[in-house]
Nucleic acid binder design. Structure first.
Length: 417
RNA sequence: CGGGGCGUAGUGUAACGGCUAACAUGCUCGUUUUGGGUACGAGUGACUCCGGGUUCGAAUCCCGGCGCCCCGACCA
């Protein structure tokens, strides 16, 4: 794609209404647009990154034999009243709205009730279980205080997976599989060395839930980490007894700031019992369905990667989620340079469409810093100087290492080395 | 929801209660320049967030809204 076909502009100055690094950089590079506090739109480039993240998540969900579906954001109060989660005194972050006839509706902040209620029409027998379903869905949470850019918004896209099992043992086994799968996801988006499996409050459902916390100063959570075991415990449940129970050495944990990029729960039979989702077993007796729910905030994950990887010059995307693998920069507004850049662009496009031609007029410095800000992993700089020698400069955005290659090397060889 | 800060061209900032609201950047048209946001010239662009009030006179002071940021609380 040619950069000139995008409408977004790269800004030199940070917007004054953003203090967090992720929002500043994503906004300056034209990946996001702020609509209002805690509400962001994804611009074309941001959408590609988001889709790349989602595809990694999707692939891993599918590997669990989970099926993707898509539920409505609008929620029927009736089912939420059954589980006592409609009342604002119980759940204080609802966005509620009304039909023309004054009937109340909610905008979903999660979907346990909706999915459980839906499955009542599909689950009857032990033969119907287990069921694993997930979706990517915009959640709405009426936060008192949105903050840190995409880290805590009022509307955000979440992958939520729900499991429905015959027995507690089945549910727990699946929970463990999800735990492993989540670690694979975070590894694939580039956060392997940052993410800690973290014990946290299980709320009303169980003793613990498992959070996936990415170490970052931008995080709003505090966790105590065991660096060897790659396990942590959230400050909210941190105590000597708790550490002993979890097999952690209370005196050897280090406190760190972290971003919660995922959270998984064993829900037991709380929702299925309340909403009467049951199945008939082999002995023709009615049984409770065992549930779990598993979330990943897509925007938050993207922002976390942006925050962690960025350097002084701007964004740095890991290859796995970068909007493009290669950006070609014609350094001078010189006909010959532009021509060569375009030729190279056309040739690479045929092999790998993940290439961007930065065909914007401007000074040398402007082009180089723009390319840096975009965060695309590999830059190919086409310059007068290079053309004299018949070579192009290949620059790694992250390591800043520079190599020189001929047109033939680039088109016939493997760019990745 | 408690506390603090802020609201001025598209963007980032300035302006003692007093000239036609300034500077930078962006954008348009020239000329120039080309290895880290190039230089010059000419243009363009603002009911100073909204509503009241004080005053001869308000971007500036006061009151009330709304919005944005930060700290805290909250976060099934």
């Amino acid at each position: 794609m040619k950069y000139s076909s995008y409408f977004s502009k790269i800004k030199k100055e940070a917007p004054k209404d953003e203090a967090s690094r992720n929002a500043q950089l994503l906004s300056m590079a034209g990946y996001i647009h702020k609509e209002m506090a805690g509400v962001y739109s994804l611009l074309p480039l941001g959408l590609v990154v988001s889709e790349n993240v989602k595809n990694i998540v999707r692939k891993n969900m599918n590997s669990l034999s989970a099926h993707e579906l898509h539920m409505s954001a609008l929620q029927n109060p009736e089912i939420w009243k059954v589980t006592n989660r409609w009342d604002d005194a119980v759940v204080d972050n609802w966005f509620k709205t009304k039909l023309k006839n004054d009937t109340e509706l909610g905008l979903g902040f999660t979907h346990e009730e909706a999915v459980t209620s839906m499955l009542k029409q599909h689950v009857y027998s032990y033969a119907d279980l287990p069921i694993y379903v997930y979706q990517f869905q915009n959640k709405f949470r009426n936060e008192l205080r949105a903050k840190s850019g995409l880290m805590r918004g009022r509307e955000f896209e979440m992958k939520d997976l729900y499991s429905f099992c015959k027995t507690e043992a089945d549910q727990k086994a699946f929970f463990e599989k999800v735990k492993e799968t989540y670690l694979k996801i975070f590894k694939e988006v580039g956060l392997e060395e940052y993410v800690y499996t973290t014990y946290a409050s299980g709320g009303v459902f169980s003793k613990f839930s498992i959070e996936f916390q990415a170490i970052s100063e931008a995080g709003e959570d505090s966790i105590y980490v065991d660096e060897k075991k790659k396990i942590a415990i959230n400050k909210e449940i941190y105590s000597k007894e708790m550490c002993e129970e979890l097999g952690l050495d209370f005196d050897n944990l280090i406190e760190k700031k972290a971003v919660e990029v995922g959270n998984i729960f064993n829900l037991g039979t709380k929702y299925s019992d309340a909403l009467e989702l049951t199945y008939t077993d082999e002995k023709n007796t009615k049984q409770s369905v065992w549930m779990g729910s598993y979330g990943i905030g897509i925007g938050r994950l993207m922002a976390t990667v942006a925050e962690i990887y960025a350097d002084d010059a701007g964004l740095v995307w890991p290859k796995e989620i970068a909007p493009y693998q290669v950006v070609i920069v014609p350094l001078q507004d010189d006909p010959e340079v532009k021509d060569e850049a375009e030729k190279l662009y056309n040739s690479i496009s045929k092999i790998d469409p993940s290439v961007l031609l930065y065909d914007v007029k401007g000074s040398v410095g402007e082009k180089l810093s723009s390319a840096d800000m975009l965060g695309i992993p590999t830059q190919i700089i086409v310059s007068k100087r290079g053309l004299i020698e018949g070579k192009f400069e290949i620059r790694d955005r992250k390591t800043k290492k520079v190599t020189y290659k001929t047109f033939f090397d680039i088109v016939e060889g493997d760019l990745k080395d």
